[in-house]
Design a binder for these strands. Structure first.
Length: 303
DNA sequence: AGGATAGCCTGCGGGC
DNA sequence: TGCCCGCAGGCTATCC
């Protein structure tokens, strides 16, 4: 993530490239909201149709740029779990899922030919204040796990696209979490990754929260006591809060005093640190595959 | 029916 | 140096 740098002679307001989990999506939301709220979408370019996922029967096979917001005024940019909810003044809108590799850029004067690969949609937006320049918002996603989902109304969005999502991880409390986990024999890791249990946790923050709570990722949901649920809920909230306050960067760029890059120093305590010492007990962190996901934990501190 | 698993997709890094 | 292979993971479909 970076802000207002110049690249190829064009002003690039911001660009996100780290793996988008809830804190990254929230950082993107705040910036996008600030720039585009109240703006009019003058033009939409769809470079890859299949990135627009539209299961509305009314529009089946008839996708036009109007459906992706052309001529619409952007009312707000909200977030639900890891999804961006762009609401138009007409009450329709679109959900943007970033998946694994999705990015959103907002730039001035973007007019490159040919269009760079993976730049699937470009919205040309006129901001509400006439003093502000027209901007281009792009959805870029090399792996295309992400996508744009259209809805006709807030009700349609709720019933078709957001239904089945669990409560927001950012505000989960112990009692509620205990209820959510108590009914399952799956591992804590699998349950935390399930968006219908809790909305917003991905692989990184699942591992981070479990380590902070001192809970073994392979423990089953129904084995968790109330005090443990309280600990886990607190760990989830604080982990996400700190990450959001840090601007959503899961990886932070550090330059050592001697000028060498030093690679990346990570903010997280366990994710990506398999074999390295636990910051609690100094013992080596272990790596397991749980719920088909790489899981890093401390066998001493997590029970 | 809950839970596990395969598959989507490209970039990147390790190994040879 | 360059190529190949495996891994990364959010989410859906499918199977058990």
């Amino acid at each position: 993530m970076s802000a207002a740098v110049r690249r190829n002679g064009q002003k690039l307001f911001f660009r996100f490239s780290s793996m988008p989990e809830l804190p990254e999506v929230e950082a993107i939301r705040r910036q996008v909201q600030q720039v585009v709220a109240g703006g009019l979408i003058e033009k939409v370019r769809v470079h890859r149709r299949d990135v627009v996922r539209d299961r509305s029967a009314r529009r089946k096979g008839r996708l036009s740029v109007d459906h992706v917001g052309q001529h619409q005024v952007i009312e707000s940019v909200d977030r639900r779990g890891k999804q961006l909810v762009v609401l138009f003044s007409s009450s329709g809108g679109m959900i943007i899922r970033l998946g694994m590799s999705g990015r959103i850029t907002i730039e001035e004067g973007l007019n490159r030919h040919p269009v760079p690969p993976h730049r699937h949609l470009v919205w040309t937006i006129t901001p509400p204040k006439s003093s502000q320049k027209q901007i281009k918002m792009s959805f870029i996603d090399p792996r295309r796990f992400g996508g744009v989902y259209l809805f006709d109304s807030v009700e349609d969005c709720q019933s078709r696209l957001l239904t089945g999502l669990g409560p927001e991880a950012t505000s989960i409390r112990g009692n509620r979490l205990h209820d959510l986990l108590g009914g399952t024999r799956r591992s804590l890791k699998a349950a935390l990754l399930d968006q219908s249990v809790l909305a917003g946790i991905g692989n990184i923050y699942a591992d981070e929260a479990l380590h902070r709570a001192g809970l073994h990722p392979a423990r089953t949901g129904d084995s968790i006591s109330r005090p443990e649920s309280t600990r886990l809920a607190a760990a989830i909230r604080s982990t996400l809060r700190v990450a959001i306050e840090a601007g959503g960067s899961t990886l932070r760029d550090h330059i050592l005093p001697d000028g060498s890059s030093g690679g990346f120093i990570k903010n997280h305590r366990v994710y990506g640190r398999g074999g390295f010492p636990c910051l609690g007990c100094q013992g080596p962190l272990e790596v397991l595959t749980i719920a088909a996901r790489t899981t890093t934990f401390c066998p001493t501190c997590q029970h």
